[in-house]
């Protein structure tokens, strides 16, 4: 799972940029409830930023299932493999 660990590090970086907060530490268990400001609008921003960064595209069905950082990491990993 070296790939997933790398993605988690990259996501942490992306989240720090999006939330303008260098203190953010993500784990697979992190959910919207853990991060102030992670509302539905921010969620879309996160998804688009991920899609642009990894040149992938999530389907609506997938997006509806993406609720934690762990879900994001797994979805990216699946698209990239």
């Amino acid at each position: 799972m070296a790939g997933q660990a790398k993605i988690l590090t990259e996501l942490t970086d992306l989240f720090r940029e999006i939330f303008v907060d260098d203190e953010i530490v993500l784990s697979e268990e992190t959910t919207a409830a853990d991060l102030p400001g992670w509302d539905s609008m921010k969620h879309i921003e996160i998804i688009i930023a991920i899609e642009q960064k990894y040149s992938v595209r999530f389907s609506s069905r997938q997006v509806e299932g993406l609720r934690s950082v762990g879900d994001l990491v797994a979805a990216i990993d699946q698209k990239l493999s």
């Binding site: 940029e17 999006i18 303008v20 921003e45 688009i48 930023a49 642009q52």
Partner: peptide, 8 residues
Amino acid sequence: LDFVRTQA
């Protein structure tokens, strides 16, 4: 700036 950095 892209949209993420514009927001930031």
